[in-house]
Computed example of a mutant assay.
Amino acid sequence: MYKPGAAKLKKYLAVSALLAFSTALSAPALAQEEGSEEGGFGSLSGKLKLASNYMYRGLSVSDDGPQLQGSFTWAHDSGFYAGVWASNTSAGGEGNSVEIDPFVGFAGTVGDSGVGYDIGFWYYSFPGSVADLDYWEIYGILSYTLGEADLGASVWYAKNYFGDDFFPDTPSYALQTTASYPLPIGEGVSVSGKLGRQIFDESAALTAQDYTYYDIGVSKAWEAVTLDLRWHDADGVKPDLAAPENVGSLVASIVFSF
């Protein structure tokens, strides 16, 4: 995750802030990829991602270094899914270099309306950290296909943002919209983007930390391989939350689905 500024570095054991799963991948998408192993008890799928930087909500959480990220998801026909996500990270404080996140949720569609929904729980853990930085988020996602465009909106809530040793007792919300559209320049080529707002509950220890984040990029998919080139950025990020050099980056990535 992103590296906090000097004030928080001294107070919170050189903590780097919040980590989550890759913005391009949602749990239901992981569960429904081609090539998953299907059976009477559901299907199993996974992804492996290599990227030039690990960006989360506009902020680098690998200190502008490369990312290796993997995930496995089991999904049932009922809509229930569960899995685990992991990545290297510069977040998690002293002694930590990896994040391992279990998740669980339920996804489906609203009748014949074309509206999809996804409700879930995500737990962020930093097993090597000497600080207490583990926390959870619950999320709700709506999706809709309008012509050839795929649209989405979501809300994420954390009761205690990044654990007891970062911003103690500080709830946070992330409100996010996404859109993607196929480009007429070749099969599997699309443009997509995201616009979000990270909102913190102000307290005596944390004020005026809200910020806006966004990304835009192009991708090309061949069967189980996807290449992506994307610009990530954020506006209004304060030094307590992230160092200026860790805000915004152009990222190239390749994802293998299985």
Rank of each mutant, 00 (worst) to 15 (best):
K3C: 07
Y12W: 13
L13G: 12
L18R: 14
L25Q: 12
S26I: 08
A29Q: 15
L30D: 14
G35C: 11
A51V: 08
S52A: 04
S52T: 11
R57W: 06
L68G: 12
L68Y: 09
A75P: 01
G79R: 04
F80N: 05
F80T: 05
Y81N: 00
A82L: 03
W85F: 15
A91H: 02
E94R: 15
N96P: 04
V98F: 14
P102W: 06
T109F: 08
V110T: 02
G111L: 03
D112Q: 11
S113L: 09
G114N: 03
G120R: 01
F121D: 03
Y124L: 10
D134Q: 04
W136Y: 13
Y139M: 06
L142H: 03
Y144S: 04
G152L: 02
A153E: 07
V155A: 15
N160F: 06
F167C: 03
F167M: 07
P168D: 06
A179H: 09
P182C: 08
S192V: 09
G196H: 02
F200H: 05
Y213K: 01
E223D: 13
A224F: 12
A224K: 14
A224C: 09
A224G: 12
T226S: 09
A234V: 02
G236F: 00
L241G: 00
A243C: 00
